[in-house]
Structure formats: C-alpha cells, structure tokens
Simulated scan of single mutants.
Amino acid sequence: MQIAEKNNVQPGYGIAFPDGETGVYTIFLDPADVYPNRPLPWAQQTLHIDQYSGKVLAKFGWNDYGALGKLISLGIAFHQGEFGFISQLFMLALTIGIIMIVVSGVIMWWKRKPKGKLGAPALPENFKMLKGVAVIVIVLGLFFPLVGASLLIVWVLDYFVIKRIPIAKQWIG
C-alpha cells in the first residue's frame, strides 16, 4: 500500500497477490470500479511489484498507452456506457444505423429480386467491381474467421447442393 501511495495510485485500487515463487504483486485501478458514476479511462493504473524486494518492475497508465491503446480504451469505455448519456446517445445512433442497414438491405433485395423467385438479383452486365469485392470478402473472412467459415458454408451449399437440385436452382436462382 505504501508503494501504491508513493507511485500516486489513486485510492480504490485492488491488489493481486503473487502466484507462486516467481509471481509479482499487481496493484491495479479500474476507474469503472472506483468511480461508477464518472469513470475516466485515463485514470487506469497498473503496477507490477517484485514480491521479494518491493521494487516496481512495471508501471502502466494512460500516458504509457500508444494511440491505438488509447483508442481501444476509449472504445471500451463508450461500449460499457462509462460516459453516461453521451455513451447512450452514441450506442443509440449505432443501433439505429444497424437497423437501417438491415431494413434497407431487405427493401433493396425485394425491389431487385427476380419475379416469382426467392433468389438473389441478377448481377448487372457491367459489374466491374466483382474481383475487388471478392478480395475484400476473402480478406475480411480471414480477419474474422467465423464470418469466413459461414461464407464458405453458404458457398459450398450453393455450389454443391442448390445448383444440383433443379427445383431449388430455379426457385432460389
């Protein structure tokens, strides 16, 4: 506790005890736990302390984060609603945006779908972006493996099942 005070760790911190002979004491301050009504991401602090000598081995805080670390920390704070009403408005705007994307997607599909079929609209004749879209889909499928796996399953079903069943091919397109 004296080491925490010497290193200006704000009151309300937690202490994790060493795990085994090579473990360290960890003093950490999570602003959401300490200031539930007004947590500030830049108040985060972490100290790692040698269990034998009491020497501070590492000290991390907001100023030690890089730009990406700060951005991620702010994103988490917004996601968890730590900015109060501003966070709520931001999340409401995101939710409305997602709903609008879904609704507009269904409307666009409905307007372009083939008559009497459930399937996808035909590609425009001068569709030059197909290769670029395919590259983007493959890259995103690699970065987001579950999305990539689901796209692969749909492609396999389409290629090996739907195209082989005449009624399904005619109705789905």
Rank of each mutant, 00 (worst) to 15 (best):
M1H: 14
M1A: 11
A4Y: 00
A4G: 00
A4Q: 00
E5K: 10
E5A: 12
K6A: 09
N7G: 10
N8L: 14
V9P: 01
V9K: 01
G14N: 13
A16E: 08
F17S: 11
G20H: 11
T22F: 12
T22M: 10
T26E: 04
I27E: 00
D30F: 05
A32E: 06
D33K: 11
Y35S: 00
P36T: 06
N37Y: 10
R38F: 15
R38C: 14
R38K: 13
P39K: 00
L40G: 05
P41N: 04
A43T: 14
T46Q: 03
I49M: 02
I49H: 00
D50S: 02
G54F: 13
V56H: 06
V56K: 03
V56L: 05
A58G: 06
K59N: 14
F60R: 05
F60D: 07
G61K: 00
W62A: 06
W62E: 06
Y65K: 09
L68H: 07
L71S: 12
S73E: 04
L74G: 05
I76K: 06
I76D: 08
I76L: 14
A77I: 09
F78Y: 09
H79A: 12
G81C: 11
F83M: 07
G84A: 04
F85L: 10
I86E: 10
I86R: 07
S87F: 03
Q88P: 05
Q88L: 13
Q88H: 12
L89D: 12
L89S: 10
F90N: 04
L92Y: 03
L94H: 11
I99P: 05
I99R: 05
I101K: 02
I101P: 11
I101D: 07
V102T: 10
S104K: 03
S104R: 05
G105V: 03
V106N: 04
W109Y: 15
K111D: 12
K113H: 13
K113M: 11
P114E: 03
K115L: 14
K115W: 14
K117T: 11
L118G: 08
A120F: 15
P121K: 00
P121T: 01
P121G: 03
A122R: 08
A122F: 12
L123Q: 04
N126R: 05
K128Q: 07
K131H: 15
V135L: 12
V135K: 10
V135M: 14
I138R: 04
G141I: 02
G141C: 06
L142I: 14
L142F: 10
L142Q: 07
V147Y: 13
G148H: 04
I153K: 04
V154D: 08
V154C: 06
V156N: 04
V156A: 13
D158I: 00
D158P: 02
Y159F: 15
F160E: 11
R164A: 09
K169F: 15
Q170I: 13
W171G: 07
W171V: 10
G173S: 14
